[in-house]
Design a protein around this nucleic acid. Structure first.
Lengths: 230, 230
DNA sequence: ATTATCTATAGATCTATAGATAATGC
DNA sequence: ATTATCTATAGATCTATAGATAATGC
């Protein structure tokens, strides 16, 4: 059983249900291994098993490819962050849960797309969609961090509200160095990050029960988030 | 008073004592604002006020430009880290001092070159020099972190030795977001990072005296380092 | 009729080299 | 003689569009 349209010359080379997904998968691999500007549309097409011009049936241009990929990495954590903010959990549990979910996701995704977050090219208006979503996520991290710091028993330096988000994004750097063979992987890195995220805000209480409660919350909201995203 | 060689058509546009420095300064600006592959040698030459082909009198190719710039960002912290390791200060002071110096430098350098550390292009052998230096710095962070953790009163999670280096590199991300207008600058961010670097390793003692002692050490060794670098 | 592919190509780059030229330095 | 620039260009790209073709769907 085939589908409409002229058949490809090559047999399928990529995972993905639709042509769009095959293309995104190939582009993600090439962008993360060779760089964005350094990857030509011809290389992407070749990795998919189609002709260069055929890509343009699915994407208006190369930028749209990158914008789709990057937006895809932020949408799920963003949904989870909103759900967590609106939940009635304790602030340190929310913070821990968000960091845990996000760090885990950044560490396990098929390609390390986070390594492209700092590309100067992204400043361009064409990537407005992605930037907007990432900044929304950043603001939610800040909001949850601030709600923790409202508890005056926590003594964090002014400026510390920024750190949890930054700490989570270090998963990307670490992963890049692991892939380059210069850091060792470690079973539960997301947990290290989540613990640090609350510690840098001055939390000095125990972490066992925070962890347990956060895992419950994440399971719950990640499910909702995933339903939203599909 | 002029120098040897045919004169340029344009008058000087760039800061720098030598043509080499002028070129590096222009390249740094363009690489950090437009991206590496997306910046042509023609644009660099234009920003310097010379013809495209003239660049090749000073650099063998475009990669050498990037390698020089990136190596330049690591050499000084590397010298400081070695001096600190070999000093007889207490481990938490060494860690704090290194993070303080490095974070400060990353935050104040003329261009945010650290934003290019994750470029996939850097995996190539051509950038071996830079990669080697950055990994040497990373290993020194780990070594100093481990010497702190040798004190059994500190209770950090396994895997935490990696965090100080990662935390310091977040200065780069933060600075990129500030330049994009989406984070507010903050007077003493390097200090926030240094404090966090020892906190994530489980240090729960006071920080005033650690800070004071670290500042002394940095002043001392940064001076030596700078002499080495020039 | 609609869809997804194909072939062909215009037009715009871009890097690096060859060789000429205009200064200073000896 | 040496140095730092210049002009000119070869050869290799690269993105996006125009228009043809080969399927399915109705």
């Amino acid at each position: 059983m085939t589908t409409a349209g002229r058949p490809r010359l090559t047999t399928k080379k990529r995972q993905g249900e639709t042509a769009r997904e095959e293309i995104l998968d190939a582009a993600a691999e090439l962008f993360t291994t060779r760089g964005y500007t350094n990857t030509s549309t011809r290389m992407i097409a070749e990795a998919v098993g189609m002709r260069q011009a055929s890509l343009y049936h699915h994407f208006a241009n190369k930028d749209e490819l990158l914008d789709s990929l990057l937006s895809g990495t932020v949408d799920e954590p963003l949904a989870v962050a909103q759900a967590l903010r609106d939940s009635d959990a304790r602030p340190e549990v929310k913070m821990y849960a968000l960091a845990l979910f996000d760090a885990d996701q950044l560490g396990r995704s098929r390609w390390n797309l986070g390594a492209l977050y700092l590309l100067p090219e992204l400043r361009d208006d064409r990537f407005e969609t992605f930037r907007g979503h990432r900044y929304a996520l950043m603001d939610l991290y800040r909001e949850i961090a601030s709600s923790m710091l409202a508890d005056k028993r926590l003594t964090a330096m002014p400026g510390a509200e920024d750190l949890p988000f930054r700490l989570v994004e270090t998963v990307v750097n670490r992963r890049a160095d692991i892939e380059a063979g210069h850091s060792a992987p470690h079973g539960d890195h997301a947990r290290v990050i989540a613990e640090s995220a609350v510690r840098v805000l001055g939390w000095s209480g125990e972490l066992e029960s925070v962890h347990a409660r956060a895992v419950e919350l994440v399971d719950e909201h990640a499910r909702d988030g995933r339903i939203l995203a599909r």
